[in-house]
């Protein structure tokens, strides 16, 4: 017998799905799931988070306009900012934010590899700032072959 562990340690599907069913509302479940599987967009062979690409309005930025630089900049999300105003003090713990950032990247990785099997991606977690975003940040870009 070979056990293939889930992405998050100490998982027990029966217990975990019971928690989801009894504690979380349908709305909370859907928002969480949507954040793990965001919309992506392909522009000029570059892959971006759709919401971030729309926000930027252009592929160019003031830091790095190489192909990888454009993707890294536009795809950057500050995990710390997500929890910035949270009253849950546990969410301000850097190690918790790093774990959550890594979990999100794992789900994005699965989706991107499914959508673009011919492309290779680099997934990055920065513990201290990335471009003009502060705190724990995540991003991704294509690996140039």
């Amino acid at each position: 017998m070979i056990i293939y562990n889930g992405i998050i340690e100490k998982s027990n599907f029966e217990t975990d799905i019971s928690f989801v069913g009894h504690i979380l509302s349908i709305e909370e479940i859907l928002y969480l799931m949507k954040s793990l599987s965001p919309d992506f967009v392909e522009v000029n062979d570059n892959i971006y988070l759709l919401s971030n690409y729309k926000s930027c309005g252009t592929e160019n930025n003031r830091f790095d306009n190489s192909k990888q630089g454009k993707e890294k900049y536009i795809n950057t999300i500050s995990i710390s900012d997500v929890f910035y105003f949270s009253e849950d003090q546990q969410s301000h713990n850097k190690s918790v934010q790093i774990d959550i950032g890594n979990f999100i990247l794992q789900f994005w990785k699965m989706r991107l590899l499914y959508l673009f099997p011919d492309k290779e991606f680099e997934f990055i977690l920065s513990e201290n700032n990335l471009f003009d975003e502060s705190g724990v940040c995540i991003t991704f870009c294509q690996i140039i072959k």
Binding site: E27, S51, N52, I77, D81
Partner: peptide
């Protein structure tokens, strides 16, 4: 505001 009426602060890249 979510469909259930929860107010959510947003200060992402947008």
């Amino acid at each position: 505001t979510t469909p259930s009426g929860k107010v959510i602060p947003s200060f992402g890249n947008s």
